[in-house]
Design a protein around this nucleic acid. Sequence first.
DNA 1: CAACAACTTGAACGTCTGTTCCACTAGTCT
DNA 2: AGACTAGTGGAACAGACGTTCAAGTTGTTG
Lengths: 179, 179
Amino acid sequence: MAVPGPDGRRARGDRRRRAILEATLRVVERDGVAGVSHRSVAREADVPPTSTTYYYATLDDLLIATLTWSADQMASSFRKVSLTPVAVARFIADAVGEHRGRTLAEYELYLLAARRPELRPAARRWISLMTEVIGPWDPVALRSLLAAVDGLLIQGLIADFPPMAEELEPVVSLLMLGG
Amino acid sequence: MAVPGPDGRRARGDRRRRAILEATLRVVERDGVAGVSHRSVAREADVPPTSTTYYYATLDDLLIATLTWSADQMASSFRKVSLTPVAVARFIADAVGEHRGRTLAEYELYLLAARRPELRPAARRWISLMTEVIGPWDPVALRSLLAAVDGLLIQGLIADFPPMAEELEPVVSLLMLGG
DNA sequence: CAACAACTTGAACGTCTGTTCCACTAGTCT
DNA sequence: AGACTAGTGGAACAGACGTTCAAGTTGTTG
């Protein structure tokens, strides 16, 4: 091949880049943002510490890249949720149950966006996605639904026992159908 | 005085304890939970580092005490809000505007509760308080309101420009009065 | 006054951190 | 083939960290 050409080095580099990102996300899930360091991520990804600094010069770069990538992932998984109260309730229950660690990670990075303007667009991605997906709703109703979903998620994270879809469903119903 | 007796030492100790707590909250507001260390708090409170470890042996003790105390404060400030859509909208707008730093601190500590069960009761305090204050509401409507307020707060924190009370008011209205 | 307890503080320990430097290998391009 | 460049990784730097220790002070109690 000629013009851009497949580059073996670059390909492997990209693979390692992604491995580092995935490792970072695992660290955040396990130990929180506080547990993220060049070295802890390097250990998790089983690469030398210099490798993490090579691809992400500063810790900020690493966290920003992780949030952006992670938000993209979550957004695309969101597209598959059908817009019925039952499905949305199920989604929330799974997020704070089965996928608790991942949701927690998401919210820690989310909150990080409050302090770093540059990652706010990524943090807001799922909001704008849902806005787009949900289509022609009353803006006020939409906003209250999005806010409530956020609240249900975060409250589900600090509950001793994560709520089940069945108890979430009436709340989501009220918000989506207006009583 | 005889039996329990006022103790000058203890009184000064309590004052310093509180000073350390206040300093911790300021550090969280300024630099986030990540910025909290025995030493940074000691600098902020203008006491030697050994003093912060004397009163709060581990960093966890310090953070737990700070969240508990801070949640108590926020809860009592909450009692003064009258339960009308306008007042609640105003409260939210102030929380993410004028008192942004404090609200941000609150949420960082809040999220910390997701990882440390022992501070969940403190984190949930404002929820149970509002539940008690608001009185005989439909549980489903109440839950959706509380969730939405949480969501509006957190979304207000990652907005480029904090929302104003006027734009919040219709949303709160819908939630409180049901459209 | 003596015994005690609450508190104070400087110094020090070992550990982990972000980051830099440099020597090196191995794909890519002309 | 030779020049170049992306990637690799060991070693080391100074700085911050949590926590402990031991020696002090000061207020309280019998």
